[in-house]
């Protein structure tokens, strides 16, 4: 699965996207955040402020409880500031 990062999450992780293969027990967005945080200090730092970022699965806004099974792309980003 592809994981994408935007804005300051991208800067903190140090890359805009990566291909990952999480273990089978990683079932939700929340699980993926926890698993990615265990992969490197940069990920852990980026995800340390869990209240200030959101996620999308295959370009649709998701919650932390959303299952990721079958997802080809999961994105993490700060709150939107368009307009």
């Amino acid at each position: 699965m592809k994981v994408k990062y935007f804005a300051w999450l991208r800067q903190k992780v140090g890359k805009s996207e990566e291909d990952v293969t999480p273990p089978a027990n990683v079932a939700t967005v929340q699980d993926l955040v926890a698993w990615l945080s265990s992969q490197s200090a940069r990920h852990a730092d980026a995800f340390s402020e869990a209240k200030v970022f959101g996620a999308a699965i295959d370009k649709k806004v998701a919650t932390f409880a959303t299952p990721i099974s079958g997802a080809s792309e999961v994105a993490f980003f700060p709150p939107f500031t368009g307009g």
Binding site: F6, A7, A56, F77, P78, F80, T81, G82, G83
Partner: peptide, 14 residues
């Protein structure tokens, strides 16, 4: 439209 664009469209500003 502009109110929802501010918070529901995936843009970020630096």
């Amino acid at each position: 439209l502009i109110d929802w664009l501010k918070t529901k469209a995936p843009f970020w500003k630096v």
